[in-house]
């Protein structure tokens, strides 16, 4: 399958890409491999580059100098802040959900 996106946080390609780029600059193929490894999600090439386009437009990632046939991307400071805020919100939501589940 090119795209095995479940519901929840793993259904957001932008978040997956931002999380992948936290450990350093990567080109498209490396992102796909990394996302498959840490989230078990097969991002389709079209989905990946649509998300990259949006992230670049938002200023959350930026292209670096091309290396070979592929151009790597890296997180911007703004992108890092955005990722941090999204993950904080997710953690808050997860904590809240788990606490309520325990109360059942």
């Amino acid at each position: 399958m090119a795209r095995k996106l479940t519901t929840g946080p793993f259904s957001d390609p932008e978040l997956l890409i931002l999380s992948s780029l936290v450990e350093g600059r990567k080109h498209g193929y490396a992102m796909m491999v990394d996302i498959k490894a840490f989230a078990d999600v097969d991002l389709g090439p079209g989905t990946l580059y649509s998300a990259i386009t949006r992230l670049v437009e938002m200023g959350w990632i930026e292209p670096c100098e091309a290396s070979g046939r592929q151009r790597p991307y890296q997180l911007t400071t703004y992108g890092l802040q955005h990722l941090q805020s999204q993950l904080e919100k997710m953690r808050h939501l997860a904590n809240l959900g788990l606490r309520r589940l325990r109360e059942i």
């Binding site: 399958m1 090119a2 795209r3 498209g28 090439p45 079209g46 989905t47 580059y49 386009t53």
Partner: peptide, 26 residues
Amino acid sequence: EYGGELAVILADRQFTPSIIVDVVLC
């Protein structure tokens, strides 16, 4: 802007119907 990079990824992969649908829809 992005066509060359997408072309490289597509050239290295085996085409499946879901990949084609993904690329067409996007």
